[in-house]
């Protein structure tokens, strides 16, 4: 092997290493998720979330997933990062399109940390077609009725909210198959809480072991930001 050949080889090897490193960095940056920013109007922030049985985004695993609605465009964004202003009343609406799964710890059936420790729930056959009137409750039993799909919890604020699943008979007939869901049977849950007094990041997560196929249902989407867990940024 001649000297020029060797030098060329070394250069090629070096270029390959650099290319690999660049690829890793680009991959890393590309994997970061967008944040949906909510701003207060009239001292109130309205956060709208959606729970889908499957994520249809072809580039990602097809796991069960939360979506966040962009307040301006009303588009559903496949992320679990959103921001709210500090010390503001936050009204959350969660549209539950996913069927029920039993809780790991049925204690999470209890509503905690919301204004009045209650949530208001209404069932829909499809968008705009309610099948019952809104009811306010302090607890949605996940075990005896299998009526809970997921939970929304911000543990460090002691906020724990079970989110009901849609009407079972309707869900078995035509569950939403394409995410983000815009039609199909779903539940609608609303509750409020006060955002914290100082800026920072608050993680939120689901307490239902809904990572189907993973040990005890706790892997996959449960441990992946952008699916069943995320962060609420509180801005100053």
């Amino acid at each position: 092997m001649s000297l020029p050949a060797r030098i060329v080889t070394l250069l090629v090897a070096f270029a390959a290493v650099v290319a690999g490193a660049v690829f890793l960095v680009v991959n890393y940056i590309a994997s970061s998720l967008p944040t949906v920013h909510y701003v207060a109007s009239g001292g109130v922030v309205n956060v709208v979330l959606q729970e889908d049985p499957q994520n249809n985004d072809p580039s990602n695993p097809d796991w069960v997933s939360y979506y966040v609605q962009n307040p301006q465009t009303k588009q559903w964004v496949h992320t679990t990062l959103f921001s709210v202003p500090k010390h503001t009343r936050v009204n959350v609406t969660i549209l539950g399109y996913d069927g029920c799964t039993p809780l790991r710890n049925n204690y999470w059936s209890q509503v905690q940390g919301t204004t009045g420790s209650t949530v208001t729930v209404q069932q829909f056959a499809t968008v705009g077609k309610p099948i019952d009137s809104p009811t306010t409750t302090k607890m949605i039993n996940s075990w005896s009725n299998c009526a809970v799909a997921h939970t929304f919890a911000i543990p460090s604020m002691h906020l724990f909210v079970p989110v009901p699943s849609p009407n079972t008979a309707l869900f078995n007939k035509d569950a939403c198959g394409v995410s983000p869901c815009t039609s199909g049977p779903h539940s609608q849950e609303t509750f409020s809480f006060m955002s914290p007094d100082h800026a920072g990041y608050w993680r939120w997560q689901c307490f239902i072991p809904c990572g189907g196929g993973f040990l005890d249902g706790n892997g996959g989407p449960m441990q992946t930001i952008g699916y069943m867990t995320g962060e609420m940024e509180v801005s100053a």
Partner: peptide
Amino acid sequence: ATAGVSSFSTGLSDV
């Protein structure tokens, strides 16, 4: 070949 195994035990890993 192991899919039957996997569905039987619910699969310890989805991946």
